[in-house]
Design a protein around this nucleic acid. Structure first.
Length: 819
RNA sequence: GCCCGGAUGGUGAAAUUGGUAGACACGAGGGACUUAAAAUCCCUUGGGAUGUCCUCCCAUGCGAGUUCGAGUCUCGCUCCGGGCACCA
């Protein structure tokens, strides 16, 4: 008698939804527990099994907490704005606004079938005006607080997506969305000042319980390094070249200085150079190179000396050449470096190529095999360094910095968040530019002290749109395709961009770029608890009740994207005084990657698992359990069709056993196994080790099958299984005569008395090798164990001939004779 | 190049953190039921030797080491996956 999962799953989904059993009381919960999962991009192709894998893993944890008495809040929504969705619309030649309606419907329909305990009333979609009104509010506040600024600088440009990208969205020189080659362009763009939070983002990692891989990735990405700023004089010039170095101890070995081609001083210095034209040509060429071209040349570095102009090494006043070379980045440090070829591989390669002297100034304190010929990048003791000879690198760093009047300085790999996009399908940036005000503010001609906020001061002429105007709605336009220029398609829509200056009421224009979609998702977890609030972004009370998020589960691919942005936004909210915590997620766990038959799932390989198919064939409970059983959730797993069989078989056995159950007295063995299983499953689920939790439940079933047990035992069994297979357990629970949902029932507790063993298997080893095991009473003494062990025939054969040198005894575990 | 993971049967994986390696499943083989198949149930299943229900040897990517005892700890490699990458 197999169970009809189609009927049962449908029935309970409907019942749960109607009764709202997964809707906590948001205003007055007893024990609030915010269980969050990363919301999906609703691609029109539908829910991916990878999404389902993540959601189910998160849901099991939520169900577990709910049964432990928590008021679990588990919301779901759609992150539908952004290049990803828009690119898909372009591909299928549809309008993103139309397409989003279809994807939304399809997605929610699928999400309703996977058996998750979602709080459906609180859903949100980032592309709806009632949501992005508040994304605009966040942007506006960023601006008003001086965390948004406009700047012309070299930026990442994706020619295929026709937009600029943030640093985090360029993966190995390629676009995170379309995988196309990213180029460099010099544009005026909006940035969020995330670097202002670099130290806190780094240091506060200590106080959150997150997967290690994410913390490591963030640490590396923020990339804090301590060093010194040192000025190099220029012969016959007033200007100085400021460089950042982490190794001021090697200053005596600095035999040349390099400016990045974009460095401000290049303009000035080249006029006095003997080879002005050559320098100009090089700088021009370098600027137009793509990142990829620069990287391709990594091994063969290029550069040009600014002939006739010399820098002066401040430590020994020696004149050294100045080069421009594109191996020096304009965007890191000061865009200029002191080159120490003996102690830096890049400088070494360059010096070799251009015949620049190499002076060794550090030698290892003890033989160090990282020293390769003339090149040594480690620390050590100084030489060829005048009065500093013989002292350690560490000491020299401080002394030499002081001597040349340098300053200690901290640098970060992290760059400011480039937030504007030249695309259509996103949140319009709620800023307005007034040329008249810009002039006045720049010249301060009126002489009147204007009350300007930080953003207005830094960006003359720019103002946030008035609150009453929010949301600034994204117009429904025919021609939404990216233009390929510095402007978004909205720049062609006069009715959109023409507006009044909030300051002088004169004519002004709106910003026509939209914001990066990662801004939409950087704050959504705040909104979930108060989605219907029309007055404010969220109510203080709800936030205090529910946040920070207790458990967040999602993919590791967002380590330095979403998971960094959310922390930044939360810290900003904290500093504005609207929340009283500064980390969004107390606990975060990254799930692993789900692959198919040993290979990554991809459309081109045609090995994408469609969850709908499996749900209709095997049921949601089976698919859920299989996904969780195949490997540890945090490590990811290999989906094989054959594996579904075992789980289906298991659920059918459960069904049969409980329908045909011999309810009566409990067998002693069953009670023991039950309590062992409760202990094991409770510990494992807490650690997200669902695979072993399921296996322990299987062991329990194997024990119970065909035996007599009490109703209480049957119920405990179902409860343990309930988070994994919510439908079938609910049905069986109901058939046992229960009226309330199993998902609101209390998670079983194990009784230590019940799993207490009187006997144990004493392991008898000789020289550490297993020879025998004997059943013996717990708590036995060493002497007694020794005596009993020696009585066994197998042991006698070994021991008789030789003398026992030593006996190792581990209580209640083993005895080892060393002979 | 740097930083994280990882490597265990035919397969997915377990192993109380130094104490019986391979739990739980899949697959395979054999058997029962059946006219037959599916489903279900039972048995066997790391490799080898011996040949009889008993025993021995070898086995956790490779090589050393620590230890009474190592899948687990240390050092040195190899391979695979992921992240970052001219960041001074």
């Amino acid at each position: 008698m197999e169970y009809n999962f189609r009927e049962i799953e449908k029935k309970w989904e409907k019942e749960w939804y109607e009764k709202g059993i997964y809707e906590p009381d948001l205003d007055n919960p007893n024990e609030p527990f915010y269980n969050l999962m990363m919301f999906p991009y609703p691609s029109a192709e539908g829910l991916h099994v990878g999404n389902m894998y993540a959601f189910v893993g998160s849901d099991i944890y939520g169900r577990f907490k709910r049964m432990q008495g928590k008021d679990v809040f588990e919301p779901m929504g759609l992150d539908g704005f952004g290049i990803h969705s828009e690119n898909y619309a372009l591909k299928v030649d549809a309008h993103p606004m139309e397409l989003s309606k279809k994807s939304e419907e399809h997605f929610y329909e699928q999400l309703k079938m996977i058996g998750n305990g979602f709080a459906w009333k609180e859903r949100l979609e980032t592309y709806k005006p009632e949501y992005y009104k508040w994304t605009q509010w966040v942007f506006k506040e960023m601006f008003n607080h001086g965390l948004a600024y406009r700047k012309k600088s070299p930026v990442n440009w994706c020619p295929s997506c026709k937009t600029v990208l943030a640093d985090e969205q360029v993966i190995s020189g390629k676009c995170e969305r379309c995988n196309g080659q990213v180029e460099r362009r010099e544009f005026s763009q909006w940035f969020f000042r995330i670097t202002e939070y670099a130290d806190r983002l780094l240091d506060d990692l200590q106080k959150i319980d997150w997967s290690k891989i994410i913390k490591t990735a963030q640490r590396n990405w923020i990339g804090r390094s301590y060093g010194s700023m040192i000025d190099f004089g220029i012969k016959n010039f007033d200007s100085k070249i400021k460089v950042f170095t982490t190794r001021p101890d090697t200053l005596f070995g600095a035999t040349y200085v390099v400016l990045s081609p974009e460095h401000k001083l290049v303009e000035k210095l080249k006029t006095k150079a003997e080879n002005t034209e050559e320098v100009e040509r090089y700088a021009e060429k370098a600027k137009n190179k793509t990142e990829q071209e620069r990287i391709a040349e990594e091994k063969g570095k290029t550069g040009v000396e600014i002939k006739g102009v010399k820098a002066i090494n401040p430590i020994n006043n020696e004149e050294i050449p100045i080069y421009i070379a594109d191996y020096v980045l304009a965007s890191y440090g000061t865009g200029a470096i002191m080159a120490v070829p003996a102690h830096d591989e890049r400088d070494y390669d360059f010096a070799k190529k251009y015949n620049i002297p190499i002076i060794e100034v550090i030698k290892p304190s003890f033989p160090d095999k990282t020293k390769k010929g003339e090149l040594y990048e480690g620390e050590g003791v100084l030489l060829n360094s005048g009065e500093y000879n013989g002292i350690s690198s560490e000491e020299a760093r401080e002394k030499i910095t002081d001597k040349v009047e340098g300053e200690t300085h901290t640098n970060y790999h992290l760059r400011d968040w480039l937030i504007s996009r030249q695309r259509y399908w996103g949140t319009p940036i709620p800023l307005i530019f007034c040329a008249k005000c810009a002039e006045r503010i720049k010249n301060n001609e009126s002489g009147i002290r204007e009350k300007l906020n930080q953003g207005e001061k830094e960006n003359p002429g720019w103002f946030a749109a008035p609150d009453n105007d929010l949301p600034i709605e994204l117009p429904n336009i025919e021609e939404f395709r990216p233009t390929g220029t510095e402007k978004s398609p909205l720049a062609t829509v006069e009715s959109f961009y023409k507006t009044k200056c909030p300051k002088c009421k004169g004519e002004a224009i709106r910003e026509t770029d939209v914001s990066d979609t990662f801004l939409d998702s950087a704050w959504y977890y705040f909104r979930y608890v108060d989605v219907n609030n029309k007055e404010e972004v969220f109510s203080d009370k709800r936030i205090k009740t529910w946040l920070p998020v207790d458990m967040y589960i999602g993919g590791a691919e967002h380590a330095v994207l979403h998971l960094l942005y959310t922390r930044f936004v939360t810290k900003a909210f904290h500093d504005w005084g609207i929340i009283n915590f500064d980390e969004p997620f107390t606990r975060f766990r990254a799930h692993g990657l789900l692959i198919k038959e040993g290979a990554k799932m991809s459309k081109s390989k045609g090995n994408v698992v469609n969850p709908d198919e499996y749900i209709s064939k095997y049921g949601a409970d089976s698919l859920r359990m299989y996904l969780m059983f195949l490997a540890p959730f945090e490590e990811g797993g290999d989906f094989r069709d054959s594996g579904m069989k075992g789980i289906t078989r298991f659920l059918n056995r459960v069904w049969r056993m409980l329908n045909e159950a011999n309810i009566g007295k409990d067998d002693e063995e069953i009670i023991k196994t039950l309590h062992q299983t409760i202990k094991k499953a409770t510990e494992d689920v807490e650690e997200l080790k669902y695979n072993t939790a399921i296996s322990s439940i299987m062991i329990l079933l194997n024990k119970m099958e065909g035996e007599t047990f009490s109703r209480k035992t049957a119920e405990a069994f179902l409860k343990l299984l309930a988070p994994f297979a919510p439908h079938v357990t609910e049905e069986l629970w109901c058939r046992l005569g229960n009226e309330n949902s199993i998902h609101k029932a209390e998670w079983p507790k194990f009784d230590p008395e019940k799993i207490k063993e009187e006997m144990f298997d004493l392991i008898i080893q000789i020289n550490g090798k297993l020879k025998n095991t004997i059943k013996i009473e717990k708590g036995i003494t060493k002497e007694e164990a020794e005596k009993r062990a020696l009585e066994s025939e197998k042991v006698k054969n070994y021991i008789d001939k030789e003398k026992v040198k030593k006996v190792i005894f581990v209580e209640n575990k083993l005895i080892n004779f060393v002979i």
